[in-house]
Design a protein around this nucleic acid. Structure first.
Lengths: 224, 224
DNA sequence: CGTGATGCTGAACTCATGTTCAATACATTA
DNA sequence: TAATGTATTGAACATGAGTTCAGCATCACG
């Protein structure tokens, strides 16, 4: 917050911040009038400053993008993505940004894809550290595993949000809390003690994939 | 016309089926005019038959609900939910229904919650069979594990859909194919060979949960 | 044949939305 | 002080949405 100078806290920025909040709370179909009312101004002024609702949306995207990278650099570099999410949810100030990202993830779009890739990178790095330390098992395809883990947890969080808090603004801190409470134990259990005792499925798939699939897998990491 | 000329294949049903298709392809914000055009009729007739767009939507929900239960009873009872999804995606005829369910899952609502619960039940039963057969490890909380597995895979599928096929109609067969190709290996690997070698996380969480699970969950906000 | 009921249309109505625009208030400066 | 440019408003416009309605067509039934 302190990094953004007071020169940025102009009306434009106030509208932008309010818009991020509205988008997070009511989704991207929120009306310009609602955004204007939330900022205590007239609808016309929103257009006067941003040209159109679409451009306002773009500006919100870039602003959220900036906040994310800022938080990422502030946070200890080795922290996992989910930890980052948790931390952000706990700090009330970041709730609109987190909500905005969640909405983006639901709607698709450039920001969503970027955010996903960012998290994948984080997870992959985090897992690599774990492998190095001996606490995490190496994978046949670390990149694919990172994507899988990211997609699973993020998708599960999204699903939990839409199913249990439809429509209006969800308290994302509470959503995260509920989500953790519901899934932390089975997740840890599944990741610690193998769910599948029988190796047949895995071996069969590997054999099948070796036969007629791409040989793109970077098997260079840890051939154990 | 084919079989049910007087039975179900009336104009009402034709509109309903077309609406399911439109909802699946363009989302629930698709216009009544589009639905009417898709059925080759006038917009007014849609309202004449269903009263309002909301009631048409409800009727689509119940119809999809019916198709799902029908497929579920037809399919071998022990089949897993994901297998059911795969099977449905492969049969072109069910593509609109699957798309409709996906859209519901993205938007939230009653049908989405019901469908999720249905899949959870299936997964739990399927896992129980596996445990009985000795191919699946037992869980401390089978119900929670079933919810977790369902939420992860379904959420991941949703996320993959929104990220890689935004907006217009995705070919759900292809989406499933891509999704399987991207995540099957790491998923099987993670479920067969434990990701976490170190048991500390699991044991710590269990101890922590046993101690103060009922008291507001994690107290991480204050003590860090 | 006539009568009514139902299926169906096309235009019009209502409403919310994004956007435009002329007019006004304000602030800065010559 | 006068001027000029920016911030801001309130009303109006255009559009697309869901819905209504009066009327035409079609068909069963007496």
């Amino acid at each position: 917050m302190s990094s953004a100078s007071r020169g940025d806290l102009t009306t434009r920025a106030r509208i932008r911040d309010g818009a991020v909040e509205c988008f997070a709370r009511e989704g991207f179909s929120v009306s310009v009038r609602t955004i204007a009312e939330h900022a205590g101004i007239s609808p016309g002024l929103v257009i006067h400053h941003f040209g159109s609702k679409a451009r306002l949306r773009e500006e919100c995207d870039t602003h959220v993008r900036g906040v994310i990278t800022e938080v990422k650099t502030q946070t200890f570099e080795g922290a996992s993505g989910t930890f980052m999410l948790q931390q952000m949810a706990e700090i009330e100030h970041y709730a609109p940004v987190l909500g905005y990202v969640l909405r983006s993830l639901q709607s698709g779009g450039a920001l969503a894809a970027e955010f996903f890739e960012l998290m994948v990178e984080d997870v992959e790095r985090f897992m690599a550290v774990g492998v190095e330390a001996g606490t995490v098992a190496p994978s046949r395809d670390p990149a694919a595993r990172a994507r899988y883990l990211t997609s699973s947890s993020l998708g599960s969080l999204m699903l939990h949000t839409t199913l249990h808090h439809p429509g209006t603004e969800p308290d994302f801190g509470r959503v995260m809390q509920e989500w953790i409470e519901a899934y932390m134990l089975p997740a840890l259990e599944s990741y610690t003690e193998p769910v599948l005792i029988d190796r047949t499925l895995l071996d069969t798939y590997i054999a099948h994939a070796d036969g007629g699939a791409d040989a793109e897998g970077s098997a260079g990491a840890d051939a154990d």
